[in-house]
């Protein structure tokens, strides 16, 4: 009988990513609810130190899969190693982040294990030992409640949504021998943007600009800089070539859940609203008082963003 919870963590360049702490914290909560043990799994090369960091979030056991071939994520090596660890431990529930890595990995893993997968979940509910997963569909226009039959159940959690809870324990740390298997993928190069701008899906604050910017993002960027925020864009702004595709928020772009989303000159097309409606607080700035964006916002300013944004920037500077 399958039992126990696995939380699969994610590291890049030997540093754990934030979604890892979310996965382990959520794993602890689920394991407690099921009366089961939580195992955190970390994969990489020379990453023993990461186990120390994971202790804080309360796993009963930490599996450290350490191999040169696991230094950077590849679908084949990670799936091979995890499938073996999962088959030998037989957990009932597997939690991972719905990050770029987690989405790629969990789809492959689910097929290998013939397991049901709930992707991009924003909530896990426990009711008498039954788990129900809440996941947005249709780009957030629908919120579905799903259950998974059989085991293991794989759940990929949306980054930036679940709480990180410290819950220090003294877990058993194991370093199992791993077989990375026959590897087909060769990593040629990692091209990472420099600077410490947060990534859109992980940012606490997003300042987003749309058609109303007319392509002039100076004020949007300055406000984002002042707030340590990421810059987002509407589809029309991306289609105009004003911003790269990677900045696009919406049903055909990224779905984001920051604490604060500041929409500047964005009218609020239905497919844009779908992508940001799970933000905790939404501020809309738009010339048109009738713009649909105001129907989804908590706070609104009707006005010209080229007057309003500099005034906001000045106020933010006063706080420092």
């Amino acid at each position: 009988m399958a039992q126990g919870v696995f939380a699969i963590t994610e590291q890049r360049d030997g540093e754990l990513r934030k979604v890892s702490f979310e996965a382990v914290s959520e794993g602890r909560r689920v394991a407690d609810g099921l009366g089961a043990d939580l195992t955190a799994v970390v994969l990489g090369s020379g990453i023993e130190g990461l186990a120390e960091e994971l202790k804080k979030y309360g796993p009963d056991k930490i599996l450290v899969a350490d191999d040169a071939a696991l230094a950077d994520y590849t679908t084949d090596a990670y799936t091979n190693v995890l499938a073996e660890l999962i088959q030998s431990s037989d957990p009932a529930v597997i939690i991972t982040g719905a990050s770029a890595q987690g989405k790629d990995l969990s789809g492959r893993l689910a097929a290998r294990l013939d397991a049901g997968l709930a992707m991009d979940c924003v909530e896990i509910k426990l009711d008498n030992g039954n788990l129900t997963y809440t996941r947005p569909m249709f780009g957030g226009k629908i919120v579905a409640k799903v259950e998974i039959e059989g085991s293991p159940q794989i759940v990929a959690i949306r980054p930036n949504v679940m709480d990180i809870v410290e819950n220090s324990k003294e877990p058993a740390i194991e370093k199992p021998a791993v077989q990375v298997g026959d590897l087909k993928t060769k990593i040629i190069e990692m091209k990472m943007e420099t600077g410490d701008k947060p990534e859109l899906t992980e940012a606490d604050i997003i300042v987003s600009g749309g058609r109303g910017t007319g392509g002039d993002y100076a004020a949007v960027e300055e406000l984002a800089n002042e707030l340590g925020a990421a810059v987002g864009a509407s589809r029309s702004a991306v289609d105009e070539g004003w911003r790269p595709h990677s900045d696009q928020v919406g049903q055909t772009g990224k779905t984001v859940s920051p604490n604060l989303y500041v929409a500047c000159g964005i009218s609020g097309a239905i497919q844009h609203l779908a992508g940001m409606s799970t933000s905790k607080y939404i501020v809309a700035i738009n010339k048109d008082e009738e713009a649909p964006i105001f129907s989804k916002a908590d706070f609104g300013i009707a006005g010209d963003l080229f007057e309003v944004l500099p005034a906001i920037i000045a106020e933010v500077k006063k706080l420092k």
Binding site: G116, M137, G140, V143, A144, K145, V146, E149, D298
Partner: peptide, 14 residues
């Protein structure tokens, strides 16, 4: 289906 849909809801209104 292994992944059973139990309910569809609209996102909570602000």
């Amino acid at each position: 289906r292994k992944v059973k849909i139990k309910a569809f809801n609209l996102p909570p209104e602000r």
